[in-house]
C-alpha cells in the first residue's frame, strides 16, 4: 500500500505544468506519446486540464494507442456508438462496434456546447481489427477525461481564489465575505475528495472505479466552474477573460465519455 505519487510522477507533473504555463504546445516533445501506465496518464491529463489544452488528446494519447498500439503521430479520434455516437475533430477517425474496430470518415459537424471542441458524426469504413481491447480503451477515455476535469477544477479554484483576494467591493476584498469563503471552501472539498477516486481508478482500472471517478470529477469540476463564474461576476462572462474557456470545456467534458447518469448506473451495476 502506497497511495501517493512517486517523485518521478511529481516531477513529470511539474515539467508539464511549467511547459504549458510557458505557452508550450508541442506536448510530444516531452515524450507524452510514450505514456501508457494509467497512473502516469492521470498525471498527464490532470495538467492538460489544468491548462485547458484543447483538442482530441484523450483520444490521441490514451484511447487510440490502447486500441491500435500507437496513434502514429497524427491526431486521432474515436466514437463508441451508441454510447458515444460522435467524436471530437481530428486527422484520423476510428469507430468501435463491440470488439470490432473500423476506420471512419466524418460526415456532419454537430453543435457542441464548447465551440473549441468541434464534434463530428462518423460513417464506418474498413475493418481494422475484430478483437480490439475496446473495454479497456473506453475506460481509459473515461479515466483521462476525469483527470482532465480534476485539472480544470483546480485551475478554476486557483483563478477564483486569486480574484477573490484582488477584487474589492464595498471597500474590502470580496474574499473576506463569508459567502465567498464558503463557496470556495466547497469547491476545494469537492476537488480534494474527487482526486483520490481518480488515482484509485487508475490503480484498479475497474469499470466501477473509473465510473465513480468520472461522476465525482464531473460534479466537483462543474461546481468549481459555477462558483468561479459567480465570484468573478460579469468579467467572467466575457469571451476576453480566460475563465470562459475553462468553463465551457468543463461543461463539455462533464457529459463527454458518458454522462454522470450513465456512469452512476455503471457503478450501481458493479456493486
Amino acid at each position: 500500500m502506497m497511495f501517493t505519487l512517486s517523485a518521478e510522477q511529481t516531477d513529470f507533473a511539474s515539467v508539464l505544468h511549467d511547459f504549458l504555463k510557458a505557452g508550450g504546445t508541442d506536448l510530444a516533445s516531452l515524450g507524452v506519446d510514450q505514456v501508457t501506465d494509467p497512473v502516469d496518464l492521470v498525471v498527464l491529463f490532470e495538467e492538460v486540464g489544468h491548462h485547458a489544452v484543447a483538442g482530441p488528446l484523450v483520444e490521441t494519447l490514451a484511447v487510440v494507442p490502447a486500441l491500435i498500439g500507437s496513434s502514429g503521430g497524427s491526431s486521432c479520434s474515436v466514437a463508441f456508438p451508441p454510447l458515444l455516437p460522435h467524436a471530437p475533430e481530428a486527422d484520423r477517425y476510428l469507430l468501435v462496434d463491440g470488439d470490432t474496430l473500423r476506420e471512419a470518415t466524418p460526415i456532419t459537424e454537430l453543435d457542441s456546447v464548447d465551440p473549441t471542441r468541434r464534434l463530428v458524426e462518423l460513417t464506418p469504413g474498413p475493418v481494422i481489427a475484430t478483437d480490439a481491447p475496446t473495454g479497456r480503451a473506453f475506460d481509459l477515455g473515461v479515466l483521462t477525461t476525469s483527470a482532465q476535469l480534476l485539472g480544470l477544477g483546480r485551475a478554476l479554484l486557483e483563478m477564483t481564489t486569486e480574484h477573490a483576494k484582488a477584487r474589492t467591493q464595498f471597500g474590502t476584498p470580496i474574499g473576506r465575505f463569508q459567502a465567498v469563503k464558503h463557496h470556495l471552501a466547497n469547491v476545494l472539498i469537492g476537488l480534494e475528495l474527487a482526486r483520490p477516486l481518480v488515482f484509485g481508478a487508475a490503480v484498479t482500472m475497474s469499470a466501477r472505479d473509473v465510473s465513480a471517478a468520472k461522476v465525482a470529477t464531473s460534479d466537483a469540476a462543474w461546481q468549481a466552474a459555477r462558483v468561479a463564474l459567480q465570484v468573478h461576476g460579469a468579467i467572467g462572462y466575457t469571451a476576453e477573460h480566460g475563465l470562459g474557456r475553462f468553463l465551457l470545456q468543463t461543461r463539455a467534458l462533464r457529459t463527454a465519455w458518458g454522462s454522470p447518469s450513465m456512469h452512476r448506473a455503471r457503478v450501481l451495476e458493479a456493486l
Binding site: 460522435h86 453543435d111 454522470p260
Partner: peptide, 23 residues
C-alpha cells in the same frame, strides 16, 4: 444539458444566458 450531453441544439444560448442570472 445533462439530458442532451455535449450536443445541445436549441438549448446552448438559453443555458449561457441563464448563467448570468445569479450575477
Amino acid at each position: 444539458l445533462d439530458l442532451l450531453g455535449e450536443v445541445a441544439p436549441g438549448w446552448r444560448d438559453g443555458w449561457l444566458f441563464s448563467l448570468s442570472g445569479p450575477i
